[in-house]
Simulated assay, not measured.
Amino acid sequence: MTQERDNQPSPASARAEIARQKMLSAALDVFGRYGFDGASTRQLTEAAGVNLQAIPYYFGSKEGLYIATAEYLMMRINTHVGDMRARVGAHLLALDAAGKPLGEAEARHFLTEILQTMVTLFVGKESESWARFLIREQMEPTEAFTRIYQGLMRPMIEMSRRLIGAILHEDPASEHVRLRTFTLLGSILVFRVAHAAVLAQMEWDGVGPEQVETVRGLAAELVDAIGASKGSAA
């Protein structure tokens, strides 16, 4: 019983963690809207409902908060994709260890799962602040981009490349497969990046469960279409 109590966080540390999480959540939105230079420390703390001293106390500086926000973003996204990525990655490693090739059918299955997970993740409203932050880092990369790319984007892109290479029976490192990978992933991300245009063209009032399922179905169609016509460029 005593050991269980010792393992529980103290009320003070629990409050500190709550405050830290509030700051990270608010910073993701504020930095996404205004960028690092445009976001003032007052905006950041007011959005989180904390005092100005909270930034140096918890993060050392505004720069420290920005990097921590990037790590927080990766953590949030990984709660959605982490299990799937680990499962697919473990399967690929097992095939490599056994010296077995990745079959086209299972490559299509895994790629469909990746795309449909992306739809659920990025088409819904929760991803608005994530997208703003990520787009800013794409346009003007900082240390935050390096961390997000190495820790999240690169593993997913390279996994998708391997799956597409298996479907097309091409080298995953080839320029063609690399380009096909970005084209395919971009066809899902456009629903977030061009959100307003999508709503206008589709005549949707918003994106709810029905719309998400429709786009998930489209994701499966996109995977089915890869390499479907042998007589034209795959």
Rank of each mutant, 00 (worst) to 15 (best):
K62T: 06
E63T: 13
E63F: 05
E63W: 01
G64P: 07
G64D: 04
L65Q: 02
L65V: 07
I67K: 08
I67F: 06
T69N: 07
T69I: 01
E71F: 00
Y72R: 07
Y72F: 15
L73N: 10
M74C: 12
M75L: 12
T79R: 13
V81Y: 01
D83R: 13
M84T: 14
R87N: 06
A90W: 00
A90F: 01
L93P: 00
A94W: 02
D96Y: 09
A97H: 07
A97F: 01
G99E: 06
G99K: 03
A105K: 14
E106D: 11
E106F: 01
H109S: 08
F110S: 00
F110N: 09
T112H: 00
L115W: 06
T117S: 14
T120H: 09
L121R: 04
L121P: 05
G124Q: 14
E126H: 03
S127R: 03
E128D: 12
F133E: 00
R136E: 06
Q138F: 14
P141N: 07
P141L: 06
I148S: 04
I148R: 09
Y149K: 11
Q150M: 12
L152Y: 15
L152D: 05
I157K: 10
E158T: 14
E158N: 13
M159Y: 04
R162S: 04
L168M: 07
H169K: 15
P172H: 06
A173H: 08
H176S: 14
R178I: 11
